[in-house]
Amino acid sequence: MDKVNAPPSPRAIHRHALTTRIWHWITAVSVIVLLGSGLMILNAHGQLYWGEYGANFDRPWFKLIWLFDSARVPGWLTIPSTYNLALARRWHLFFALVLAFALLAYMIVSLISGHFQSDLRIRARELKAAHLIADAKAHARLEFHDPANPRAYNIFQKMSYAGVIFVALPLAIFTGLAMSPGMNAAWPWLLDVFGGRQSARSIHFIVAMLLAGFIIVHLALVILAGPVNEVRSMITGKWRVPR
């Protein structure tokens, strides 16, 4: 009998706070829509540049045509599924607002409640090579939880969740703002921070791909850790401690 189908241990604990669960699903939907609509927006000019400017006569560091003969991202990955820049922008700029304000609210609530401090704080001993290697070995054995403290996140969880919440999502938001000509006038420091509008566009794309990579690994680990128990814990908060 494999781990996925093993009967759950009777011990259940409260795993995720209500605000975490609400934020998780709002963000899950937003990020998926933003990735799909973002790829459609990229179709309109499938080249990326470094610096302030960049257009057809300039030298790109990335071309969509290297990946796809049509120079367009296939329709099963984009929102909408057929070429439509205007509608993709409507989706993108709607869910950009949802993502940004949900993250802001979640950050405020979680700082006040102490969720970040108690659950995501990375301690020095967790970064020691011996600890990292031991945890990597445990992952290879599909053991993701410390039996002594099953509610605690392991170091790789902490690093990836903190990376998404404090680095990737804010970077996506601010590089997105740095592409707005109105915001460029109002907050010119955005251009200086990212090294110009086309650099901001490039970083925006790289961060989006990192987030896509996170989603793939995250879903794979949810499946390996027992999808019913994991998904339920993010809906009801209740989580059965694996044996």
Partner: peptide, 27 residues
Amino acid sequence: GGLLAGCDAIGKSQPGRDILFKAEAVN
């Protein structure tokens, strides 16, 4: 796949567009 098909349906429906297009005024 259903999610993407759903998004296409929303993008074509008038109520769906009305909601999405509201973001312009907010931005």
